[in-house]
Amino acid sequence: MTITLLLLACLLTCAGQVAQKYAVESWRGLESGIALKLRSPWLWLALLCLGLGLLVWLLVLQRLEVSIAYPMLSLNFVLITLVARYLFKENIDLRHWCGVGLVIAGVVLLGQHA
């Protein structure tokens, strides 16, 4: 159950970050005023996902030591890299992929203590 909650917190946070990206992309060409920007459904989706992610994260912290739980959030780097590559068509170089591999190795090592 704890691992499921941890993965859900990561997914919600990642979804919130993707929605943030779409929100700022939708603001291109708009006036600098905030009123139009506040109408962006992407902004509200980002706030919803990040808010839910926070609530799930609190449940994770009830079940895991913070020294184990917090580094597990580095899975977000992996998820966001995949989203950047496949959804936003960004070029990811070999050094970046090696870093992603190291993050995964670190999560696996920490996960053995959970």
Rank of each mutant, 00 (worst) to 15 (best):
T2Y: 10
K89A: 14
L64F: 13
L94I: 14
A105Q: 04
L47K: 05
L79C: 07
H113R: 14
A69E: 10
L7M: 14
D93R: 15
M72C: 09
T13E: 08
V83T: 09
L45Y: 06
R28D: 03
G16Q: 04
L6G: 13
L50A: 02
F88C: 04
G106T: 01
V107G: 01
I34K: 07
I34R: 08
G51F: 11
L45C: 10
W27N: 04
G16C: 01
A19Q: 00
N76A: 10
L47Q: 11
E65R: 13
G33I: 01
G101P: 03
R63G: 09
V103C: 02
C98H: 12
H96K: 15
A46N: 11
T81D: 10
V108E: 06
I34A: 12
Q112L: 14
V103L: 01
M1G: 15
W97M: 14
F88P: 03
I68L: 15
A35L: 12
V24N: 03
G29M: 09
R28V: 02
T81A: 14
L52H: 05
V66C: 07
G16S: 02
L38P: 00
I80R: 00
G16T: 03
G99T: 08
L64S: 06
A23Q: 10
L55A: 11
A9D: 06
R85C: 13
Q20I: 06
G101V: 11
Y86L: 15
P71T: 08
Q62R: 14
G16Y: 03
I68V: 15
L82T: 10
W42I: 03
A19R: 04
T2P: 06
S74F: 04
L8A: 15
A105V: 11
M1T: 11
R28L: 07
P41C: 01
V78D: 04
G99A: 09
L110T: 11
A35F: 06
V18N: 00
V18M: 08
T81R: 01
E31W: 02
L36C: 05
Q20L: 08
W27G: 02
P71V: 07
R39H: 05
S26K: 04
T13N: 14
F77L: 08
L8P: 02
G111K: 12
L109N: 07
L64H: 04
Q20T: 09
A9M: 11
V60T: 07
S32Y: 06
L45H: 03
L38N: 03
L5C: 06
G111H: 12
I34C: 06
C10R: 02
L94N: 13
L82K: 09
A46G: 05
G99Y: 09
F88N: 02
K21A: 09
D93V: 13
L6A: 14
E65I: 03
Y70P: 00
V108S: 05
V108G: 05
F77W: 01
A9E: 09
L94Y: 13
S40P: 00
H96R: 15
S40H: 02
C49N: 05
W97Y: 15
L73T: 15
W44I: 12
H96N: 14
L36I: 04
A9K: 09
G33W: 01
C10W: 05
K37P: 00
L82D: 07
K89C: 11
